[in-house]
Design a protein around this nucleic acid. Structure first.
Length: 432
RNA sequence: GGCCCCAUCAUCUAAUGGUUAGGAUUCCAGAUUUUCAUUCUGGCCAUACGAGUUCGAAUCUCGUUGGGGUCACCA
């Protein structure tokens, strides 16, 4: 079983989507089910409705899953396991207040030394624990040996016991922390391969320590994906528009193109343009680069354009707000200068809307417009052009510039003959 | 700062000890198109640095520098 475990605390991030995608591909390749687990243990941060949004996005990108669960539904298991660790003396109650810990943390920061839990409550006598009325957390005793994480992408890295530390499993409010809930749930779900972002790499030895303390011996495979960097060369944050899947969709990037780019970036692929289905055949976690990759919106635009070119005209027409194959074909013509659906919609809209004509072309424009409205139907651009030339007396730039504005909606654009074929049945409307 | 990871054009990558270090995106120039854009052709641009190992290093080793991640009773 593989799993994708997002938390419903914000908009779906592009990095999350990539993790979801890779999990999906790997689950299909390995013929193992995929579990979607919503990590909702932080009641304060959960945003109502985000969960639904996550499933909608997954569906939109064609990511299919076999099972789904809410992490909070496993609460009784988290508590039972914590109790067991306490009984086995693998964990202990900690009565240090958040404030005390905070001051100690500040102190080490000032002394420029790494903060570690000082073990204050590790060896309390049973009576001291029983009689203590203070709220408490439960901490795992740090392991007595280093833990090595073997990662499909990163190779292996070893962590010392001090770096794993005696961290908190259960908070004072009796709810599990992320690491504990995650480790228990992965164990319960019999997860075989965990694909997640590199920012979880330092959590992995902690979760392995939990498994070890619980006596769970199944060897889980790991793949930590390199971070996606924003323009600044730092981890993409909510502040980067492009990090939001919703934003990219609104900008007019096709899910297929986003998928293509997410698989392509920081990776070695046989071709540049491909579908998810094609990628299934050759995708391999081992070819993912170890170094973080920078998000390049220009490359995404290029890929989007390529996918747009391959789209069925009818479908493309619907995407730009029409229901006519001809408009779809017209949109394709505009693909030479537009690369997103949003840009395409603007170009097409400009053709059907009242035109903005610069003064120098106003006169010619009016002549051409009236001529077009009264002209007979011409099947091809050449005849239409000849008709206009004959009746207007215009030629060269004074003809073509206003004409372009009239039927192209802009001063610049694709070959007018290419526009005309798809517009000839709309001509009266366009010149209106 | 501690720990972990990384290092080929501006960006994403290819070259599994022997290549004029290749491709793509971006950018620029010429060409062509009765306007512009497109298209085509071409161009700019990289092995971070320093030591080894070797007949030979982008490739292996070590160091330096640089970059990133992470250090919560968040996930």
């Amino acid at each position: 079983m593989l799993r994708f475990a997002p938390s419903p605390t914000g908009d779906m991030h592009i990095g999350n989507l990539r993790v979801a995608l890779f999990n999906y591909i790997s689950s299909v390749q390995r013929e193992e089910p995929l579990l979607i687990r919503i990590e909702d243990t932080d009641k304060e941060r959960n945003i109502p409705g985000k969960e639904k949004e996550i499933f909608e996005i997954l569906a939109l990108f064609g990511i299919k899953h076999q099972e789904q669960q809410l992490q909070s539904d496993n609460l009784r298991f988290h508590r039972a396991m914590a109790l067991q660790l306490l009984q086995d003396k693998k964990a202990f109650n900690c009565f240090c207040s958040a404030e005390t810990l905070e001051t100690k943390r500040e102190a080490s920061k000032e002394g420029k030394i790494a903060y570690r839990y000082d073990g204050a409550c590790e060896n309390l006598l049973d009576e001291e624990v029983i009689d203590n009325p203070l709220p408490f957390t439960i901490r795992l005793k740090k392991p007595n040996h280093p833990i090595t994480v073997t990662d499909i992408i990163k190779g292996s890295s070893t962590f010392a016991p001090d770096d794993i530390d005696s961290f908190i499993l259960m908070r004072a409010d009796k709810y599990p922390t992320y690491n504990f809930a995650c480790a228990v749930d992965d164990m319960l779900a019999d997860i075989s391969l965990i694909i997640r972002g590199e920012d979880h790499l330092s959590n992995t030895p902690k979760q392995m320590a939990i498994h070890e303390a619980l006596g769970y011996t199944k060897k889980i495979e790991y793949a930590h994906l390199p971070i996606i960097l924003g323009n600044e060369g730092k981890k993409m944050s909510k502040r980067d528009d492009a990090s939001s899947v919703k934003w990219l969709l609104e900008e007019g990037f096709l899910p297929e193109a986003i998928t293509n780019y997410l698989i392509l970036m920081g990776n070695k692929t046989p071709t540049e343009i491909f579908s998810l289905k094609e990628a299934m055949k050759w995708f391999d976690l081992k070819t993912i680069s170890k170094a973080p990759a920078r998000f390049d919106i220009d490359k995404l635009k290029f890929i989007n354009r390529e996918h747009l070119k391959g789209l069925d005209p009818k479908e493309l027409s619907r995407y730009v707000g029409f229901a006519d194959e001809e408009i779809g074909l017209l949109a394709k013509v505009f693909l030479e200068e537009a690369s997103t659906l949003k840009e395409l919609r603007l170009k097409i809209k400009a053709i059907f809307e009242p035109k903005n004509v610069p003064d120098e072309y106003k006169e010619g424009f009016d002549v051409l417009r009236k001529l077009t409205l009264s002209a007979p139907h011409f099947d091809d651009y050449e005849s239409y052009k000849a008709y206009l030339m004959e009746h207007s007396g215009l030629k060269g730039k004074t003809l073509f510039k206003p004409l372009r504005i009239l039927i192209g909606g802009a001063e610049h654009g694709p070959e007018m003959a290419d526009l005309y074929v798809h517009l000839k049945n709309y001509l009266k409307e366009v010149a209106k």
